[in-house]
């Protein structure tokens, strides 16, 4: 940028303050990193960094508390909404969010998320659905598509044996305690902006004392899916989001 240096420039888009300098430990092309950045941007914009607490899950994002420039802990597998409930009940002035994968939230942690949603806990839940257990090596998740091959469904997910893909927002939308609920992707720049807006509302649902806010982000796991990052991102758009329809299910934030 030799010549550009001579020009007067302003930074248009840069790494948000609410991320630490630590490099993400995720695989190349993993969408976790995009969602991390969006959450951090929202925290920056809402000016809540100094009172935000992160509850990280078990899974690839177990290290999430290393990446966010906020106080944090890591909950037992699936229990993040219960940990967040304890924090928020004891310190309602804090902003508490959980960051959970599909194994964490949609399998082992279904009880915790359902009851936190039903109680209308003033917490924000970022739910990453990438159809597999990433950390443990790409095993079948409750969100795995029918026919999809994983290390524990080597011949493809069979609905007779394994049941059907689980749709969390469709299930939670009936709960009156939920104040914001959406499913998005980060598969192209426009979707990224939509996801960010949804995340912001999920935080506002908490901050404005309306109820639980949850955003499910359909995310690529190139490693778990055996695809290159561009191909995996395209697959989210063309295949994955056909099973899991994106949209806003509940919006009391307005």
């Amino acid at each position: 940028m030799k010549n550009a240096e001579k020009l007067k420039t302003v930074v248009f888009l840069k790494r948000p303050e609410s991320l630490t300098d630590k490099e993400f430990t995720y695989c190349p092309g993993c969408h976790h990193g995009i969602v991390h950045r969006l959450v951090a941007e929202v925290i920056d914009e809402l000016k809540i960094r100094e009172r935000t607490i992160l509850v990280a899950p078990v899974g690839c994002s177990v290290f999430a508390y290393e990446f966010f420039n906020v106080d944090g802990t890591v909950a037992p597998h699936g229990r993040a909404p219960a940990v967040a409930t304890g924090m928020k009940r004891a310190r309602p002035d804090l902003v508490v969010f959980t960051y959970q994968g599909d194994g964490d939230l949609a399998a082992i942690g279904t009880s915790e998320i359902i009851h936190a949603a039903n109680r209308g806990e003033r917490i924000t839940v970022i739910f990453i659905n990438n159809a597999v257990y990433g950390m443990t090596g790409g095993q079948m998740a409750p969100t795995t598509l029918i026919g999809m091959k994983t290390t524990t469904s080597p011949y493809g997910r069979d609905e007779k044996r394994d049941g059907y893909p689980i749709h969390i927002p469709e299930m939670l939308k009936e709960f009156k305690g939920v104040a914001f609920l959406a499913r998005t992707t980060v598969s192209d720049p426009v979707e990224v902006i939509r996801t960010k807006n949804a995340i912001k509302k999920a935080f506002l649902a908490q901050i404005n004392d309306l109820g639980l806010g949850l955003v499910e982000v359909l995310s690529a796991c190139p490693t778990g899916w055996g695809m290159d990052p561009v191909e995996a991102t395209r697959w989210v758009k063309e295949v994955f989001s056909k099973e899991y329809k994106t949209g806003v299910f509940v919006d009391k934030v307005k």
Binding site: T73, R79, V83, M87, E112, H115
Partner: peptide, 26 residues
């Protein structure tokens, strides 16, 4: 004070974890 009847003992212990993290007797 805060009283909450949880959905299970599994949730209870994790709620304690949360309260303890923010420094309150629980």
């Amino acid at each position: 004070g805060v009283f909450l009847q949880a959905e299970s003992e599994v949730a209870v212990v994790n709620m304690l974890y949360g309260v303890s993290c923010v420094g309150k007797r629980v």
